[in-house]
Amino acid sequence: MELKDTRSGFGAGLTQLGKSNPNVVALCADLTGSLKMNDFKANHPERFFQVGVAEANMIGIAAGMTIGGKIPFTGTFANFSTSRVYDQIRQSVAYSEKNVKICASHAGVTLGEDGATHQVLEDIGMMKMLPNMVVINPCDYNQTKAATIAIADYIGPVYLRFGRPKVPNFTPADRKFEIGKAVHLQDGTDVTIVATGHLVWEALQAAKTLANDGISAEIINIHTIKPLDKKAILTSVSKTKCIVTAEEHMLNGGLGDSIAQLLGRNNPAPLEMVGVNDTFGESGPPMQLLEKYGLDAKAIVAATKKVIARK
């Protein structure tokens, strides 16, 4: 399996948009290389805006640039794309209904060695609480590239979350990205496992282990946390009668939290959630951090066995 970083998928998508959509502009807060925006910058210097280490200003400029028809893509780390500029996004982008694409790399603990100051685990929650905001967390390079291209055609604010480490690139390169439409990866009958971002791959690995134990898992990739594909989730749970959620994010406010609301209102089936439990991250190699914080295939297997026992 080819290993590729999702941020490079973003960079490749942006490169393609540079050619196909003259209204796309890109802004970056001193992280052009990290966000893989170099190609766009080289190909379209007149449409690339280096704002320096000034994220609040970047969000405001992006909001203003929409007036007159531009489609701004802002690029910085996920922490500086959200918690640092929450009020700017809230007022100048979300409340103002501006067509800004907030593109956020290095999300979650897999940012790795830089440690907790940079490992935002609250961003999905913050962004999904904002009215008008679409929240997308693709799982691999191909899907991130496709999502980047797709959001340019959607009119309205979008938060696009991706990451730093090289991970398996397993989704088809030619699959069109549909905002808000869950991707069914594997049929199963005993449990529904819904995952987002890097943990989709972990969920697929967990499914193999579970199969060896005679457990049939249905795997759904929820790349769009808002709007949530409620129908896909409820349909699957009506069959399997239990569900596990998995995300590289805080349990409070994440995908699992959205699904708990959905089930509570519609079909209160047993639910287990894989995510970070009310703690900050730390420095370390990405995959060791996934293991330590209970975000890997092993954790998904354990949660699955627990939820099935509760049926």
Binding site: G60, A62, G64, G68
Partner: peptide, 17 residues
């Protein structure tokens, strides 16, 4: 404190256009 950034963005788009 947000309006100047927005105004700059609108000014940049004017230039692009």
């Amino acid at each position: 404190g947000q309006g100047l950034s927005v105004a700059i963005g609108a000014a940049l788009t004017k230039k692009l256009n």
